[in-house]
Amino acid sequence: MPNAISISNLSKTYEGGFTALHGIDLDIRDGEILALLGPNGAGKTTLISLVCGILNPTTGTVNVQGHDIIKDFRAARQLIGLVPQELHVETFETVWATVNYSRGLFGKKPDPALCERILKDLSLWDKKDNKIMQLSGGMKRRVMIAKALAHEPRILFLDEPTAGVDVELRKDMWQLVRRLRENGVTIILTTHYIEEAEEIADRVGVINKGRLILVEEKKELMRKLGKKQLTLELVEGLPELPEALSHYDLDVQDGGRRLVYSYDTQAARTGIGSLLADLNRAGIAVKDLDTEQSSLEDIFVSLVEEAR
C-alpha cells in the first residue's frame, strides 16, 4: 500500500536554539490509525504542526501522498484536516458560518448538504445558529472537528482529541474515527490516554524528547514487549516458599495465599509447566489461576524510562 505521509529526517530547532524534533523518519500508511504517544513536551504537536504547514521545518522533507508539503503545498494541504489541541474558535461566529468558512478556506465550493451531515454526525445540528461562545467546551471541541472535516480530508490529525472531554463525547469521537477509517481516511492522533491508543490504533509511535523511539504494530508491540503474569490462588496459605520453588521468579502475596509468576511470552520455555508440576509435587493445592498481559501503558512507561 502507498504511504499517506512520508516523513524523512524532519527536525525543528526554534529560534531560541531549542530543538523540539531530531531527525524524524516516519511512514504513515494509507488508511491506518496511528497513535503517537509521548509525555508533555515530547514534540508531538511540533511534528503535527510541521506536517500541516503551521511551522517551517529546519531540515527534512514531508510528502503527503507524493506531494511535497512545501513545493506542492496546495495539493498536500488539501488532503489534510487538523484538529489542534487547544480550543481555537471564532468566538463571535455561528457554528454554521465557521464550518462553511473552513470549507471555503480549503478551496472547496460550498456544499450545505455535506456541512449539514457533518454537523448532524457530531450532534451539532441543533446548535448550528448558535454563536460559538455560547457553547460548552465539549461542543467547541466538536465544532473544531466539524471544521477539520468540512473539506473532506483524506488524512486527519487529531491532536489530543480527548483531553478534557467527557465520556460521552469521547465515545462519539471514537465512533467517528472508526467511521472515517471505514471510508479510507488515514488518522493520526496523539493522546495521553494510553488505553485509547490500545483500543483504537493500528500502529503506535512513541515520541520522547523530540525523538521517535519506535513505531510498531500495536499487537506486535504488545506481544514483543509485553510481559505476562500468572497468578495462582492457593487453597491454603504458605508460611514460606518451599525450597523446591525458590528458583522461580515468584512473588508471594496476600499472606502466602497468592503466588504471582512473571514470564516472558517470547521465551522458548515459559516455565509454566514445570512450575505447576513442582507445585503439585510439593503438595500445594491451587484453587484458581489467572494470566494477565501488561498493558500498553506499562510498555510505554518502561520505554520512556529507558530513554531517560
Partner: peptide, 14 residues
Amino acid sequence: FVGTIYEVLSAPIS
C-alpha cells in the same frame, strides 16, 4: 490572538 490563525496557515492558500 485567539489562535484561529492555525487554520489559515494550514489551508492550501498562499
